[in-house]
Simulated scan of single mutants.
Amino acid sequence: MALITGITGQDGGYLAELLLRKGYRVHGFAREATMPLRLQHAGLADDPNLTITALDMRDDSGLEDLLADCQPDEIYNLAAQSHIHTSFERPDETSDINATATMRLLKLVVRLGLVEKSRIYQASTSEIFGDSKLPRFDETAPFHPMSPYAVSKLAAFEAAMNYREAYNVHVSNGILFNHESPYRGENFVTRKITRSVAQLTCDTQGAWTPLHLGNLDASRDWGHARDYVDAMWRMLQQDTPGDYVIATGSVHSVRELVEAAFGHIDRTLVWDGAGVSETGRDAQSGELLVCVDPQFFRPTEIFCPRGDARKALKVLGWSSTTKFEELVSDMVRGDIALLQQASPKLHSASISLLSAEG
Rank of each mutant, 00 (worst) to 15 (best):
D335A: 07
L18W: 00
V276Q: 13
Y163T: 12
S319R: 10
V110Y: 04
M161V: 13
H212D: 13
C70I: 14
E116L: 14
E116M: 08
S219T: 13
R333S: 14
T194N: 04
L211T: 14
M103W: 04
G113A: 10
E180D: 15
L211F: 08
T201K: 07
E301C: 12
H83C: 07
D293A: 01
I175H: 09
L134D: 08
R333T: 15
L39F: 11
L108A: 10
G9I: 09
I265W: 09
T279F: 04
A218W: 12
S126I: 00
E278L: 11
T322N: 04
R184P: 00
L289S: 13
W208F: 01
S277R: 08
S95H: 12
S196L: 05
S132H: 12
D227W: 03
T194L: 00
F29D: 08
L3N: 03
T300Q: 15
L50A: 08
D239M: 09
T125W: 02
M331Q: 13
G286T: 06
S352A: 15
D217E: 09
E93P: 00
G6H: 09
P294M: 07
H212Q: 11
E180W: 11
D56W: 14
L353Y: 14
G280Y: 01
G317H: 07
E89S: 05
A30S: 15
